[in-house]
């Protein structure tokens, strides 16, 4: 009897804590600190357009015009409210968890997902930032707040050590799965080709990075494809239009440093994504992988999807034009776009 009485008391204490915690200031402070995108959900649910992306949305250097890519899209649709989920280093899996939080009854009509081809590769998937993203995402799960908090404290998410991620990445780079003959049959073999001299040569280092970022073949078991499938199903369920915007990559530099064996892989991967999803009626796939010249890429020492203001405008315009399919009656050309011929 004593045990039952004590267990009941223990349970009662747990329930009381669980009920009071979400109402506390400590909980809100914690969310701001740990998982601030949680508050973005409240904004997003009252918008017609949602843009999800990693850091490609932002200006990355000291430009006079710091507007985000999503703001440029928004400029084409002044009568539609638009908000973005944009967390650096994030990807479709992370965005899916945020999108899932949007209530079934919301104003959302169209979701635009920016897709970085690199995010499908071993380096990004095993990035050390992955742990941080997974950690943030715990609070985005649809469970009682106190349980999410406890799970977070118990590290109940994919929180591999950096060394483990490096091992996973290295293992993938050693696998001879590329559709070429040795030495281009694996990332590590390919990187040993001394086209640009020794390792001290910056071109050699950059070529190495390009191979590591883009030398892979996307297939159905790629975790990002599974994430994308989940986003597609969610969009269908909620009645959202989905625009998959495959972001431009620095093809010119990839070609000059490594050659067309690498660029062909990039094109093949982006086409694979396009062909997989474009047949579905609620989905528009924009394959802009070769849209921009290298001048528009702001990072010169590492392959990224960070664009200058002109680059962001061009991509935004292509997306905005694609949105005319569902929102054409609200389309209007902003002043800055009238000087360009985006079509």
């Amino acid at each position: 009897m004593g045990i039952i009485y004590r267990i009941s008391l223990f349970t009662l204490i747990l329930i009381t804590i669980g009920a009071l915690y979400p109402k506390s200031a400590a909980y809100k402070d914690f969310l701001w600190f740990e998982s601030d995108q949680f508050f973005q959900v409240d904004k997003v649910r009252n918008c017609e357009l949602i843009y999800t992306s990693a850091s490609s949305n932002f200006s990355q250097n000291k430009e006079s015009d710091q507007r985000k890519l999503s703001q440029f899209i928004d400029a084409f649709y002044p009568d539609l409210a638009m908000e973005a989920f944009n967390t650096p280093a994030s990807h479709l899996g992370y965005h899916y968890k945020l999108l899932r939080l949007i209530p079934e009854k919301s104003k959302v009509q169209t979701v635009i997902c920016a897709i970085n081809i690199r995010s499908f590769g071993a380096d990004w998937r095993n990035s050390e930032l992955e742990t941080t993203l997974n950690k943030q995402a715990v609070m985005y799960s649809q469970r009682p707040a106190i349980l999410n908090k406890l799970l977070l404290s118990l590290n109940a998410y994919d929180n591999k050590e950096i060394s483990e991620r490096v091992l996973d990445r290295t293992r993938e780079w050693n696998e001879e799965r590329l559709p070429y003959k040795n030495p281009q049959n694996s990332v590590n073999n390919w990187c040993r080709v001394e086209k640009w001299g020794d390792w001290q040569n910056p071109k050699r280092q950059l070529a190495d990075q390009f191979i590591k970022q883009y030398a892979f073949v996307i297939d159905e078991i790629n975790p990002r494809i599974q994430d994308l499938d989940a986003v597609v199903i969610l969009a269908k369920k909620r009645g959202w239009n989905l625009v998959l915007s495959i972001l431009p990559e620095n093809i010119e530099i990839a070609d000059s440093l490594v050659g067309n064996d690498l660029t062909n892989l990039i094109f093949a991967n982006s086409e694979w994504i396009k062909s997989r999803y474009s047949s579905q009626t609620h989905i528009t796939v924009l394959n802009n992988v070769n849209l921009l010249s290298s001048d528009h890429f702001t990072d010169k020492d590492f392959p990224t999807e960070h664009y200058d203001v002109e680059g962001r405008k061009i991509i935004a315009a292509y997306i905005a034009f694609a949105l005319r399919k569902n929102h054409g009656h609200l389309f209007s050309n902003p002043a800055w776009a009238s000087n360009h011929n985006f079509q």
Binding site: L9, F10, I13, L14, I17, G18, Y21, S24, A26, Y27, E34, T131, K135, I146, K149, L150, L152, S153, N155, N159
Partner: peptide, 20 residues
């Protein structure tokens, strides 16, 4: 005793560190 248990439980559930 039970105040101490409740306090520790509240602290663990609500205020435990989240850095891995």
């Amino acid at each position: 005793r039970w105040s101490a248990y409740s306090f520790m439980l509240l602290a663990i559930l609500g205020f435990a560190g989240t850095v891995n």
